[in-house]
Design a protein around this nucleic acid. Structure first.
Lengths: 192, 192
DNA sequence: GTCTATATTGAGATAGAC
DNA sequence: GTCTATCTCAATATAGAC
């Protein structure tokens, strides 16, 4: 792992726990074993560091997700797989994804172009889900009134898991992934 | 409105837009028309101010929500009403609720007792919803496998609305409230 | 209840040696 | 690529006058 990657990993962990503004450059540097000023060799500013984290995590998620569904013939199975993979990925990478979701507003206020870049990627994922829902409706697999609202509902559902799931709780993440896939496809989308 | 309330309103607006750590005491004071040091007459610290906002907004929400459902005879109608009222309340009070949700972690790290206090209130709401689901299942109104997981799914769904809803968009908040109530009761809970 | 003045600390960032 | 040293600014909070 390059030093630059080490910085990203350390910063992600700290940002996820304490929030972007609560973490100083010195704290990030200390976690890597260098001095604060050395960070500026890799990132011109703290905001650039946040941008790198948010962009990397968003890209990695999308690039993992979308190909995972192509093998399934029915739209119901594709979306079931998408939801399961989404829940599992967000659990494994919960720190990056927490930062990517929570601190997006920071970029929105202070770096609109970079915010737009990341939002466009997220949006492409949402659109892909919505197209699957529309296609599934046309194929008679789903019964729902509004594909756009249904896509938002499914994403709201899966993104909420990390707010409450703890490995010390009563469920395994695999159980939650399967259950939420059923709630999404069988419940929200009215799939058979 | 008392000055103390003015401070809370101004701080809520700023915290909601920029985040707790990005807003200085001076900025809050300026929004009210006083000096930074005068804020300490009302709140002993910035964290106390955040606690007041989070506690007030959480209490106000619960006290509005739970009585609103009592008039309905069936559990399906109660939960439908609960979801609708939840979506509408979170829209009208989106600033307070955004702060109450997003900055909870700040309290969790720096004031565990106060965090626990607020979490207990939120938990009582979640438990009330879960009991309605259990009762509805017993009455044959719902078809779902796990009331606890279903309650979490419903809350995840309704809490996600403020992440994407904009008054300038294609939907009215009333339409979303009705649609999400249907998705919740007819979809997630398998209600008839 | 609000002010001025200030204590104290730490932030993000830069310059320039090595 | 990392360091020391430092700039500049703003943060939370306090003391004490009015």
């Amino acid at each position: 792992m390059s030093r630059r990657e080490e910085v990203i990993v350390a910063a992600t962990e700290l940002f996820a726990r304490d929030g972007f503004h609560a973490v100083g450059m010195r704290a990030i540097a200390e976690a890597v074993g260098i001095r604060g000023s050395s960070l500026y060799h890799y990132f011109p500013s703290k905001l650039d560091l946040l941008h790198a984290i948010a962009l990397d995590s968003t890209r990695a998620f999308i690039e993992t997700q979308l190909p995972s569904v192509e093998a399934f013939p029915s739209y119901a199975d594709r979306i079931r797989q998408l939801i399961q993979a989404h829940v599992l990925y967000f659990h494994v990478h919960r720190q990056e994804e927490a930062v990517g979701l929570r601190e997006l507003q920071e970029l929105r206020e202070n770096a609109p172009a970079r915010y737009a870049e990341i939002q466009a990627i997220r949006r492409s994922y949402q659109d892909a889900l919505e197209r699957m829902i529309v296609a599934g409706m046309a194929a008679g697999e789903f019964e729902c009134e509004d594909a756009h609202l249904a896509a938002l509902a499914v994403l709201g559902l899966v993104n909420s898991v990390n707010d409450w799931f703890r490995v010390t709780g009563h469920y395994t993440i695999d159980h939650v992934a399967v259950s939420y896939a059923q709630i999404g496809v069988g419940g929200i989308l009215g799939g058979r």
